[in-house]
């Protein structure tokens, strides 16, 4: 019963909160550029605007193009509901590491298909780049969380959170290594610097944006929303798996509220970190990306070998 309530709560919580963190990152970046920037609620207004717009659809678009936004959005909210966000007292079968990672991969797969579907030249190169990056990211992503799974002797994320929060500070060296590896995968998966530039208008340099160039109106809104969800999912995984303190351990209103507050604070700090990083470096050359992604993999392996 409690599982269902929490699951439903998170089902709503992630999509409701996710545009806020996109707005916060943009706001912080604006400050670094001597700009005032739009308010942190701007992404909500943009979604509202897009949901009220008409759509233009290519004549060559097939059912994949039409279905992809729904699939991608659905995947992100299901995953968002299944990961540990405010509490560690429920464990759904969906909270398994491999289930989460490959559910997200399913979304990426359909996004890449949709990019190619209309035959747009940019969509094709976007999809090709996305699959290259996604394939190279997967190792670092899985192995960094796997390091924690070895600690917890379970691949269930909730169990991992419980175990890691009971660890003494001295055992944190491998966890920090795994966190760095995860952070690299986070940046790659959520199409951020140094992998992709979410603010660019240059079609030729795009990865994520190139795939969704053909979308407009409501479907674009769904995809933008799904990207925001995905960003929040990765932020949550980052803060809750690697720094799990403060998660609600019991199902009482007080504990839940405290858990939520701590969660928001942690996610805010991590997203601010992402914004600072994006403001201080240039995007990497496409063929240098595998170097960083490989670093992510190696760091995970080191973390695992320290744990075993």
């Amino acid at each position: 019963m409690i599982s269902i309530i929490i699951w439903t709560l998170q089902l709503i919580l992630v999509p409701v909160l996710s545009p806020l963190f996109v707005g916060i990152v943009r706001k912080i970046k604006a400050h670094f550029q001597n700009r005032q920037g739009a308010g942190i609620f701007q992404p909500y207004r943009e979604l509202w605007k897009l949901f009220h717009k008409d759509e233009v659809e290519s004549e060559d678009a097939s059912w994949i193009f039409r279905a992809a936004p729904y699939i991608i959005f659905a995947v992100t909210i299901v995953v968002g509901a299944s990961i540990p966000i405010i509490g560690t007292f429920f464990a759904s079968r969906l909270s398994d590491l491999l289930t989460i990672v490959y559910c997200l991969a399913l979304g990426t797969f359909f996004l890449a298909l949709a990019g190619m579907d209309t035959g747009n030249a940019f969509g094709g190169s976007g999809s090709s780049r996305e699959m290259t990056v996604a394939a190279l990211t997967e190792a670092g992503l899985i192995f960094s969380i796997l390091a924690l799974a070895f600690l917890a002797h379970s691949t269930n994320l909730v169990t991992i959170v419980q175990t890691v929060s009971d660890l003494s500070l001295f055992s944190f060296t491998p966890i920090i290594l795994a966190f760095v590896a995860f952070l690299i995968a986070l940046l790659a998966e959520s199409a951020r610097f140094p992998f992709d530039n979410p603010a660019t208008h240059l079609e030729l340099t795009m990865i994520h944006e190139a795939m969704i160039l053909e979308y407009s109106g409501k479907k674009l809104a769904l995809i933008e929303w799904a990207s925001a969800n995905k960003f929040l999912i990765f932020l949550s995984l980052g803060v809750n798996l690697f720094f799990p303190w403060g998660s609600a351990a019991s199902f009482t209103p007080g504990a839940l509220l405290l858990g939520l507050a701590v969660f928001l604070l942690k996610v805010f700090l991590l997203s601010a970190g992402v914004a600072v990083l994006e403001s201080s470096i240039a995007k990497y050359r496409f063929f240098r990306l595998q170097d960083i992604l490989f670093t992510s993999f190696i760091l995970s392996i080191i973390a695992i070998s320290l744990i075993i």
Binding site: K29, Q33, F193, P194, T200, L202, I281, A282, K283
Partner: peptide, 12 residues
Amino acid sequence: MLDTGYSFGGSN
């Protein structure tokens, strides 16, 4: 600088 994504240089 902006085209490399180095937004600090771009805005300045």
